[in-house]
Design a protein around this nucleic acid. Sequence first.
DNA 1: ATTGCGATTGTTAATCAATCGCAATATACG
DNA 2: CGTATATTGCGATTGATTAACAATCGCAAT
Lengths: 146, 146
Amino acid sequence: MRDWEERFTSFLKARGLTFTRERKTILEAIFATHDHFDVDSLHEDLKKRGERISVATIYRLIPLLVESGMIRQAVSRAGHPTYEHLFGHLPHHHLICVRCGRVAEFREERIEKILDGVCEREGFSPIEYRLGVRAVCSTCRREEKK
Amino acid sequence: MRDWEERFTSFLKARGLTFTRERKTILEAIFATHDHFDVDSLHEDLKKRGERISVATIYRLIPLLVESGMIRQAVSRAGHPTYEHLFGHLPHHHLICVRCGRVAEFREERIEKILDGVCEREGFSPIEYRLGVRAVCSTCRREEKK
DNA sequence: ATTGCGATTGTTAATCAATCGCAATATACG
DNA sequence: CGTATATTGCGATTGATTAACAATCGCAAT
């Protein structure tokens, strides 16, 4: 059994909820890639897999996944929430191309150190650092020159 | 004439648009404080000032303000876009209390230096760095202890 | 295997913010 | 002034999310 499966099952059990076929199927789709997703892309994914799961079920599952720490809301340029799963992912930040929407990830511990200091100075206890760099990627930059 | 007024007027003129009484009134409300705002809070503000401007007008103005660089979308914990104006504001980042929603601002040039390096490494041309620290503020931490 | 109960599901209807279409006004400019 | 164009507010519309509900499912105790 994959670790995410085990972890989510026990999260559900602790609340008297059940790990159904639908929930398992949705999780499989989520963990099949490291791509960011939203309700719609996930629904499409499921269709491609020949699954007919209603969007309502997806909407209902997402808060549970967030609470259990399986996924989190990601940065994006879209006007609606997108998510990313948190297994096999170290904490990281994002470079977002404002033209094509491509997202690259990076990690920089020096920044976290600095931010720890900022939080202390301001009297905040940090939970999470979210860093999004809006930029233009090399491909789009070449395009623009034309 | 305030600089934001002049700047927005010329932006509009360059596009054959006009600086109307409504647009001026909305801008005044926006620049009257340094608080973040959304369409609804702005509409409320205008009501308090005795102005009856429809939300549609606000919705139509916002993209113009963003394009002209007068405001930008801000980080927030709300599920819909919020904005902040960019006059008399140095570039800065946000500490957001996840309990009470309080936002504190800070500035850290060391971080920008590091990010310049990251962008170069990844082949991105940076436009803007957005850093949001999700945290619990000192007041809320005291509350939680009880 | 069966039962019973609460959780879960898909469908449909309701909600809500955001956008659009249009007729009435306002504005710029000759 | 008078015309052309931009702007406004209203109300209708859209699209995404949530709620209500009746039918089914999962699971633990028979």
